[in-house]
Write a protein that binds this DNA or RNA. Sequence first.
DNA 1: ACCGATCCATGAGCATAATTCATAGAAGGA
DNA 2: TCCTTCTATGAATTATGCTCATGGATCGGT
Lengths: 297, 297
Amino acid sequence: MGELERIHLEIVRAVHEKGSLTAAAEALHLTQSALSHSIKKLETLLGVSLWHRDGRALKFTEAGAWLLASAQRLLPSWEQLEERLTEFGRGERGTFKIGTECHPCYKWLLKITPDFLREWPEADLDVRQKFQFGGLGALFQREIDLLLTPDPVFKHGLSFQAVVDYEAVAVVGPEHPWQRLEYVEPLQFAREVLYTYPVDTDRLDIFTGFLTPAGIRPRRHQLVEATEILLQLIADGRGVGTLPRWLVDEYAREFPVKGVRLGEQGVFKQIYAGFREGEQNLPYGQTFLELAKRRLR
Amino acid sequence: MGELERIHLEIVRAVHEKGSLTAAAEALHLTQSALSHSIKKLETLLGVSLWHRDGRALKFTEAGAWLLASAQRLLPSWEQLEERLTEFGRGERGTFKIGTECHPCYKWLLKITPDFLREWPEADLDVRQKFQFGGLGALFQREIDLLLTPDPVFKHGLSFQAVVDYEAVAVVGPEHPWQRLEYVEPLQFAREVLYTYPVDTDRLDIFTGFLTPAGIRPRRHQLVEATEILLQLIADGRGVGTLPRWLVDEYAREFPVKGVRLGEQGVFKQIYAGFREGEQNLPYGQTFLELAKRRLR
DNA sequence: ACCGATCCATGAGCATAATTCATAGAAGGA
DNA sequence: TCCTTCTATGAATTATGCTCATGGATCGGT
């Protein structure tokens, strides 16, 4: 036991990426021969072959494909670990890595970070927004230390708690007929163009919490990545959107937009902070939660 | 780059488990000197020290603790990968590993597996029920290939779909006053002893879907691990429980118990099958879902 | 069909890295 | 204080990984 080494994963990944042993060897700063020997050894040791020659191309066997899939998951973890350790070496405490899964999460985070940095002058901070296996996977695999998300998951090994309460409101431009309304009903969306971020509809508050329960679909659903563009479109009267009320209020200085309550009762949501179990009590996490709580009041 | 090797993780884990370098060395079938050298090299290469001597004990530094935590997560994956590969070597397709997160899931699985084995005579099957980081983590980390759970999670990288519909019913013994009722109301539980599996109440259908919404708590809540014991207690008139109706019907031959509807409408639940994204289309997963669908009709 | 280019496999030899051996120093227990 | 037990370190040894050289196979171009 203990035959499988890091180099084997590296080789498999490189072969997959570069397409040939020779190219992979170059990428790894080794000779083709070295790779061939390494793999051969692993294959005899484990009694499994990783690929078979199809013409002069290498085709992964099922075992090879499995190894590749594992390599693509394990090696990034490995590299992050190395990176983390060198960070510990250089600095003292390493970087606190925060992942966000929604734009409001990100905007809210920006309000917290100045205080955080003030409390931890020696801390380094990093914020990530794209994850290969989703924010949850990133948290599991220690790619990030904290995940801000509107969709908490109460599972073993992870711990979530709400850090923000906010009201989701419709955003309308200055000429829009909803300007003077107290609130809007789902039905009123049926004749509107709705701008949202480009994510699954079942992750959009406006659908899950408002339109879908009422069985309503907007006239057209248009996806926009950048918040500023979204607000410009709305300000121009081309349609409506939804955002947290505090975010609308903030942008109201820049854009002539207004927030309108969704339904008589309003739609209220939370943002959750997720940690790996136990780690919310580590220094950085502790501070973060305290700052969040302070802001909540 | 590329300095951190598997052996380093092994060493750190062994030192943590055995408490000393010497003991760790023995466990790894190496000399104490070898470990000392290996670690020393890693430390200089990464520019970080992993532990400092406190008396003659080794105390992990923050970096060391981080490395340890990572080792405890990565090494099991590593070992499972090796195991998997040797399986591919011996047999042909490897073992299909299924995890269950609830007892009904498990009981239901037992109905499917004979058909599955018939369709795949060469397949090996393994069922796991305990997971260090929860079923979700096990799925992420390829400890299992399929997760059966009542709590699906719709996240990137994972795909869930319902495979069973069932009605959760109250289970009562032969002398119990509920025997002849059409259904029971939440309030009636207030004077009963309730037996359930030992999991969080927010993962028990009877609480989340029935008692808690009505603001009712049973007179006493007693935890039992084994289903057969639970049924014996119920048959003996010591209290009531809840199970899927089909499971009660099955056990009715062995135990004098009866299922009673929860509320006038009944409480209906699903069991979900979760795969890593894409893998539900692989041969085993495909077959499994087809068998599940066939049984659903 | 041939020839050249390209790719992988393999054996031999070598260089480097890993491991052991031997030993010294530090710390705790009796 | 002495004895035991632990880690660190330098030198010697062993083992492993890597390169070099080469052969066989495949594909594309002419």
